[in-house]
Design a protein around this nucleic acid. Structure first.
Length: 179
DNA sequence: ACCCCGATCGTA
DNA sequence: ACGATCGGGGTT
């Protein structure tokens, strides 16, 4: 398996506005413990202006990493059984994050992990993987290998407020089989 | 200490 | 469209 270190995304990529970073992450490759996962679906969650964001009501122990500088992982536990992976964006004190909702394996594109919970379960991502600096970590980072995926924009999934915001970015022409 | 609900998933 | 599921975040 090729080492993607030389394609690693640097801090400045994550310091842009979350609404810019979320679609830009499509086609990028998550390197996580020897896995290489191409991102197919993301959602943008910003801070105080976004009622669907975990950061909307201010800093808590769970979401505090969202208030830090961009380029860190934010993993949270949901529905008593699932984990969801985010990447924090923007400068400190400007809380925002991108939810990763789908990936496929770079070396086995037949299998599409669609859905944030399924994806984390399949990849083995849990609360021990939150607050990791993915700009410096040896085993957890994001790489740009030049894949570009056409996408469309829709409302976000599973939220009760903020539905009017079009902040879900889904690649078209995905592998058909979901796993 | 404890209550309540969710950035989901699978089946119908 | 809806019910299962339950840990832990948020508040007391």
């Amino acid at each position: 398996m090729k080492n993607l270190e030389k394609y690693r995304l640097k801090r400045d990529f994550f310091l842009n506005d979350v609404i810019e970073v979320a679609p830009a992450l499509l086609g990028k490759v998550i390197v996580f413990k020897n896995q290489q996962l191409v991102i197919t679906e993301t959602e943008a969650y910003s801070g105080y202006d976004d009622p669907a964001s975990h950061a909307f009501r201010g800093k808590t122990p769970r979401n505090e990493i969202m208030f830090g500088i961009g380029g860190f992982s934010y993993v949270y536990f949901i529905y008593g059984m699932y984990h969801c992976l985010n990447f924090v964006t923007g400068p400190a004190e400007q809380p925002s994050a991108v939810l990763i909702r789908g990936t496929y394996n770079l070396h086995d594109p037949s299998c599409h992990w669609n859905g944030p919970g399924k994806m984390c379960r399949a990849a083995g991502i849990d609360l021990t993987h939150t607050k990791i600096d993915i700009v410096t970590s040896e085993w957890f980072y994001v790489a740009d290998t030049g894949i570009t995926l056409p996408f469309h924009i829709t409302p976000r999934v599973g939220i009760s407020r903020g539905q009017e915001m079009l902040r879900r970015f889904v690649a078209t022409q995905l592998p058909k089989k979901s796993c």
